[in-house]
């Protein structure tokens, strides 16, 4: 990799260079370079176990990389203190694969949780309004007093997204947003991701192996193979290749 490519991109909201991480004897990420630009949806594609989720977990400090540099909003993430990292986390929303709603809390309490703890000067009325607005934006106002166990998979995903949006982040990270959902609900989620981008002016990284989702939401697509991004570009650019692995990925999704 030449030095110019390894240089941090100052125009990017998030810039990753030569990121490496291993779990025991497995080298999962082996020199990842990536830039996320303001207002774009970047889809990260790859097979299961290639380190897609690991990548965004490193971004928010849930995992620590073995080597490499990450910069978000012009600040180095990998050298941040706990306080600085918490401040950064308020700007980055993370939507988990299984929604990760708090089982023991109602939908209202789930949404209030980050707000109450990070905006302590808000009045009860402000909190209620923010919760209602967030639920309205994902079209699930009626679920406000329900428990997560009473919701469908698609509703849980939407509530999970609403919970991250309540802090009005600048960047959204979606981990497998359509995994385990029926095709109609997948379309709803894809539309929601695009609506979030428009309404909140967010930049997003969408981790998925669902090409329909990638095509629907991705401004750019990055394919992760063998611990590195092998192809980055628009959806059509990425799949316009004879690379056997890329074609196999495409055919399994669209043909078979």
């Amino acid at each position: 990799m030449d030095n110019q490519k390894r240089t941090m991109n100052t125009d990017a909201v998030i810039s990753i260079r030569d990121l490496r991480i291993s779990f025991g004897e497995y080298h999962v990420l082996r020199g990842v370079d990536l830039d996320l630009y303001q207002g774009e949806n970047l889809v990260v594609l790859g097979r299961s176990g290639t380190g897609k989720s690991v990548l965004i977990k490193i971004l928010v400090g849930l995992l620590k990389a073995d080597a490499g540099t990450i910069s978000a909003f012009g600040q180095r993430v990998d050298t941040m203190s706990k306080k600085e990292l918490d401040d950064l986390r308020l700007k980055i929303g993370f939507s988990f694969q299984n929604s990760a709603l708090y089982d023991s809390m109602t939908v209202r309490e789930n949404l209030e949780f980050p707000l109450v703890r990070n905006a302590r000067n808000l009045s009860r009325g402000d909190i209620d309004r923010a919760v209602e607005e967030a639920l309205e934006n994902v079209g699930l106002s009626q679920t406000i007093n329900q428990m997560p166990s009473e919701l469908s998979g698609g509703q849980r995903k939407r509530i999970g997204i609403a919970r991250t949006l309540i802090l009005k982040p600048d960047v959204m990270l979606y981990d497998e947003p359509t995994a385990g959902l029926d095709p109609i609900t997948c379309i709803d989620i894809n539309n929601l991701i695009n609506e979030v981008k428009e309404r909140y002016n967010t930049s997003s990284i969408v981790i998925t192996h669902d090409l329909t989702c990638a095509k629907a939401v991705g401004d750019r697509v990055a394919m992760l193979f063998d611990g590195q991004f092998q192809r980055v570009g628009t959806f059509d650019e990425v799949f316009d290749t004879d690379d056997e692995r890329v074609q196999q990925f495409y055919h399994y999704n669209f043909v078979e």
Binding site: K57, V60, G61, L62, D86, D87, R89, L90, I92, F94, F96, Q97, N98, A100, L101, Y102, D103, F113, P114, R117, N118, R163, T164, L167
Partner: peptide, 17 residues
């Protein structure tokens, strides 16, 4: 344990809690 494996603890962490 259940909160850990269903990433609820991670969800708290990434919301700066």
């Amino acid at each position: 344990g259940s909160m850990r494996v269903t990433e609820q603890i991670d969800a708290m962490e990434v919301s700066a809690t």
